[in-house]
Amino acid sequence: MTALITGSMAYDTIMVFHDYFKNHILPDQVHILNVSFLVSDLRREFGGCAGNIAYNLKLLGKEPLPMATVGEDFGPYREHLARLGIELRYLKEIEGTYTAQAYITTDLADNQITAFHPGAMNYAHLNRVPENVDIRLGVVAPDGREGMLCHAEQFHRAGIPFIFDPGQGTPMFDGAELIRFIELATWVIVNDYEAKLIEEKTRLSPELISERVDAVVVTQGAAGSLVYVDRRPLKILPAKPKRVVDPTGCGDAYRAGVIFGLLEGYDWETIGAIASLMGAIKVENAGTQNHRFTMEEFRQRFWDNFGYHF
């Protein structure tokens, strides 16, 4: 039994500008802004929430099922996933579209200018959550707006418990829609900013949401995370990275750790610790799908960080 992960598949084109945007943007002239930045560093990475979560869950020895809509340019990404042995049956190619793409330019102060093209992601609703399939749990991660709404309802109708993980898609929904997601979900995972945004729209704090679901997880970056069960918060300490290289994708790695722990039936203290270690390993590497480890190495690092074996 495994997890069906609905969400985006994307290419991330990342460029580094070896200067500061502030040196080239005149604040009093932004109404006629016309700038060009020479970027000497460029890399193209495989990304998207469904792809990243599936990648990390595969590292943990599970068999994830990513479900997403992709474009005609998906070939290299498809080959990458196939080499990893990740099941591709729920990826739907949309004719005449590009796979979702993010173009990110970062300056030396880690400021970012990003252009995002959703492409095939806009057709996420054309994929349907399968019924009568051996799926233990589901994930509704950032995707096309209509797709996220449909997939939550479909998981519920199929009797499949699921994680609601709105991520950067949170602003797309109003208060009533967010409450509906919460009513349907079994677990909710957000970062601290998203938690505040949801509370502003719904008047539901993480404590109050935890009365409606089995657990609410609120990540806090380098400060660790909180797990709320029946309004009671459990503090999860962060694992220690060997170095900090790139935080992009840490949230998706953390979520894979949560899914792994739920599939294994662990308690929330252990689930949170596994998830924290996944985030720490990811931050040590550039890109969202370039880190590697064996389960033996992972278990040793877990012992080193938390002092017990899972």
Score class of each variant (00 low, 15 high):
79 E>T: 08
165 D>S: 04
204 L>K: 06
172 M>I: 00
235 K>L: 12
165 D>H: 01
267 D>G: 13
126 L>A: 07
270 T>E: 03
100 A>E: 01
174 D>S: 10
298 F>H: 10
52 N>V: 03
223 A>F: 03
115 A>C: 11
68 A>T: 01
160 I>T: 12
150 C>A: 14
133 V>K: 13
36 S>G: 09
118 P>G: 09
236 I>T: 05
23 N>T: 09
298 F>I: 09
145 R>I: 10
146 E>I: 06
236 I>L: 10
150 C>R: 15
82 A>C: 06
277 L>N: 04
299 R>K: 15
209 I>N: 02
104 I>F: 01
290 N>D: 07
247 P>A: 12
81 L>Y: 14
8 S>G: 09
254 Y>E: 09
81 L>P: 00
214 D>I: 12
99 T>K: 06
46 F>K: 00
57 L>I: 06
127 N>H: 08
61 G>F: 10
48 G>T: 01
109 A>G: 05
127 N>R: 10
225 S>M: 04
9 M>S: 05
96 G>Y: 06
62 K>A: 11
62 K>E: 15
176 A>N: 12
76 P>R: 04
106 T>G: 08
259 I>T: 00
278 M>G: 01
63 E>W: 02
106 T>I: 15
309 H>L: 15
173 F>N: 07
184 L>E: 12
97 T>Q: 10
129 V>E: 07
261 G>P: 04
94 I>P: 02
170 T>V: 14
257 G>R: 06
204 L>P: 01
242 K>T: 13
114 T>G: 03
202 T>Y: 10
256 A>N: 04
214 D>L: 11
169 G>V: 05
180 R>S: 12
119 G>A: 06
295 M>W: 14
292 R>N: 14
48 G>H: 02
239 A>N: 00
152 A>N: 05
68 A>H: 03
53 I>L: 00
225 S>H: 00
1 M>C: 01
77 Y>T: 00
31 H>S: 14
305 N>S: 14
133 V>R: 11
232 R>K: 15
211 E>Q: 13
144 G>E: 04
196 K>Q: 14
32 I>T: 07
15 M>I: 05
31 H>I: 09
310 F>G: 08
165 D>Y: 02
29 Q>S: 11
175 G>S: 11
207 E>A: 15
53 I>S: 00
302 F>N: 08
125 H>V: 11
161 P>L: 07
156 H>P: 02
139 V>Y: 08
262 L>A: 05
104 I>A: 03
87 E>N: 14
304 D>V: 11
88 L>I: 11
172 M>K: 13
62 K>W: 07
242 K>S: 13
